[in-house]
Design a protein around this nucleic acid. Sequence first.
DNA 1: AAGATATACAACCGCCCCTCT
DNA 2: TAGAGGGGCGGTTGTATATCT
Length: 359
Amino acid sequence: MKAKRVAYQSGTEGSSKERHHVYKPCTKGLKPTVLFSLFRSDFCCLLFWFVFSVGVAMGRAPCCDKANVKRGPWSPDEDATLRSYVQTHGTGGNWIALPRKAGLRRCGKSCRLRWLNYLRPDIKHGGFTEEEDHFICTLYSQMGSRWSIIASQLPGRTDNDVKNYWNTKLKKKVMAGKVRLKTNCDNPTTLASTQSLPYDQRVQTHNLAFSATQNRSSSTLSMSTDADSGFNMKTQSLNLDPVPYYGPGIMHLSGFGASTMKNHIVSLSQEGSSISDSSSSAMDNKFGSLPSTEAKATDDLMDFGFGFSYDLVNGLYSEDKAGDAAPICYPELADFTYAEIKPQGLNGGENRHGDNQEN
DNA sequence: AAGATATACAACCGCCCCTCT
DNA sequence: TAGAGGGGCGGTTGTATATCT
């Protein structure tokens, strides 16, 4: 049950319907000169209200009054206030109302972010282990930039942390061939859930079950979810091309946090792997089974969305044979143009955030 | 030593989804 | 059933710090 809604706190007043009201001057019976002068002023008013109304209609109202909330870095006092309030009262299921109750001049979303990414007691910052590197790379290869899901598999890590780490360090490590990955497993589980296993076994457990190569031009993905994981068992097919590709197996995703599962699908395309927000599709479940790799080395190419593929079996992961030695990279498989390192094929995200580029 | 450049990461933005009325 | 509002997410930006020239 959600908390009672709060009234608009932004600079606008009333409901969105009321905000659509446009000032309409009466000009009946006025002389032309007066009419003209009125027209000029009214035109400005109309223009203002038109722009204002359109602006309101086009986008949603802000969650808080941006003019009256503090922004920027949090002070230690604010941190203490927020921590104390949340630990004492909880969030109450309403972050928007929380800052007012807690006596903070901050946007509710800002409070939420600060708590989740920084103040939460179980947070780990920095110091990513090699194991975590592998895990992140593996999951990134499977699902792209679903940072919240990836982070949910790493105890103490936040999506923001993982995202920043990937963008600033790990991506470069991968490009430099300093991250080892291993394939041949079809049941990825959380890092936390396998902590007790020997390292090599854990890596095997987390390795890629999903492969996509650039020359695999057509695919049909058998989408299913694991009833054991809490998902609804469902099987669906996604025809991406008239010539279907039937994957050799099913990838179980029981380890992924079901609570964060929303409508996303994983698809294969000519560009390789991609994950699409299903807002543009009819898919009900976010993840499903994917063609798993059955130790076919030629199929074990990992597409990081960089515009190239890695040979996972022979290339990136070499611990089996060479201990901690750096992996072998295959330049013929990779376009290392650094500028090209950017997740691609995340159609939903690109669409969703296309407007952001205007900022 | 100083300015330029690179790096790291906290914080923000705007969108979408879900729930409630 | 439509609209409002909040939560959550991924992408981007801003800024402090580190490194380089």
